[in-house]
Amino acid sequence: MSVRIGVLNVQGAVSEHVEHVRLAGAEPVLVKHPDDLQGLSGMVLPGGESTTIGKLMRKYGLLDPVRELAQKGLPVFGTCAGMILLASRIEGHDEPHLGVMDVTVNRNSFGRQRDSFEADVAVSGLSDDQPFPSVFIRAPHIVEAGPDVEVLATYDGKIVAARQGGLLATAFHPELTPDTRLHRKFVELAEAYQMATARH
């Protein structure tokens, strides 16, 4: 049976992630309310406007339960705004959102929309060595990563992909290209989590 992966359905590139989760061989589940979190083996936080998504996650009572699940080991994959939601520290802001990943992020690090770009980026830990086609849209980057964080990719000297246990974060948008390698990597993390929790 394929693993169930939640896709946060508040705002942003939700349908694109749903499609990629399906292509990666897992069953996507839309998550808007705390009830939707039942029986998930992983969760995706899509790109969108982090301020808007963070605000509405609080309002719908999603922030605390998702944080608890992530702290207990539920794999979570955050792209762009999703990476900001995961971070423990956001430059220029007092309060993080989920705050579960030991990184400091800077928002809109690459400039305004006219500076948004695509580039091929070498990402480690994928199924092959081909560079990943990466779309950066008003993208953030990781300024500083804690000792338990594995840096998976840098671009222009900036950390743009990282992993800490089951937490996977990219500054770019793998859901906007046909490449599903990062989603497949995440599905492997979710499968490992499902195996581990089934044993208990």
Partner: peptide
């Protein structure tokens, strides 16, 4: 186009 996709449901 990706920039607009990030605005969906908003």
């Amino acid at each position: 186009r990706g920039m607009a996709q990030m605005q969906k449901n908003g």
